[in-house]
C-alpha cells in the first residue's frame, strides 16, 4: 500500500505540464530563452485558439515561437516583440486582452454586474423590511384591559 502510494505521488510529480518547445528551437542564452518562454505563454496559437504557442504542437505555433526568438535575439524588447505579432494577427493573439475602449465592457462587466446586482438586492431587502407593518399602538380599550390584568 505504502509503496503504491509513493509510486502514485512520484507519477503525479512527474506529470508537469508539457511544453511544446523542442530543444532545437531553444536559444543558447538562458536569459533570452526565459523571456521567449514568457512571451510565448502569453500568445495564443491561432490554429488551436485555446492554447498558447508555448503549449501548442501546431506547425504555425512553432513558426511563431521561432519568430519570437528571432526578434529577441535581434535585440527587440518584450513589448516590441509582442507588438510585432499583434500587428499581424490582432489583439486576439493576446491571451490576456488589453484594456482599451473596445474591451472596457469585458473588463468592467463583472464589476458592473456585481455592483448592480448588489444594489438591487439592497433595495429589495430594504423594501421588504419596510413592507412589514409597524405595530400599531394599543387602543384606549386595550390599554385599559392591560392595566386591569396587570393590576390583577
Amino acid at each position: 500500500m505504502r509503496r503504491w502510494r509513493s509510486g502514485l505521488i512520484a507519477a503525479l510529480l512527474a506529470a508537469t505540464p508539457a511544453a511544446a518547445v523542442l530543444p532545437d528551437e531553444m536559444l543558447a542564452d538562458p536569459a533570452l530563452e526565459t523571456r521567449a518562454r514568457d512571451i510565448s505563454q502569453q500568445l495564443r496559437c491561432v490554429v488551436c485558439q485555446n492554447q498558447s504557442i508555448d503549449d501548442s504542437d501546431a506547425p504555425l505555433a512553432r513558426d511563431l515561437r521561432l519568430l519570437v526568438r528571432e526578434q529577441l535575439s535581434a535585440g527587440k524588447s518584450d513589448a516590441a516583440t509582442m507588438d510585432y505579432v499583434v500587428a499581424r494577427y490582432g489583439d486576439f493573439v493576446l491571451l490576456k486582452p488589453p484594456v482599451e475602449p473596445a474591451t472596457w465592457p469585458l473588463w468592467a462587466g463583472p464589476f458592473a454586474l456585481a455592483i448592480g446586482g448588489g444594489a438591487m438586492l439592497a433595495l429589495w431587502l430594504r423594501r421588504r423590511g419596510a413592507a412589514v407593518p409597524a405595530e400599531a399602538p394599543l387602543s384606549a380599550a386595550e390599554a385599559a384591559d392591560l392595566a386591569r390584568l396587570d393590576g390583577g
Binding site: V46, V47, P59, L60, D63, L64, L67, R88, Y89, G90
Partner: peptide, 13 residues
C-alpha cells in the same frame, strides 16, 4: 517555404 511571409499576412490556415 519558411512560412514567414504567411505570418506577415496573418495567415492562420
Amino acid at each position: 517555404l519558411s512560412g514567414r511571409v504567411a505570418i506577415d499576412l496573418g495567415v492562420t490556415g
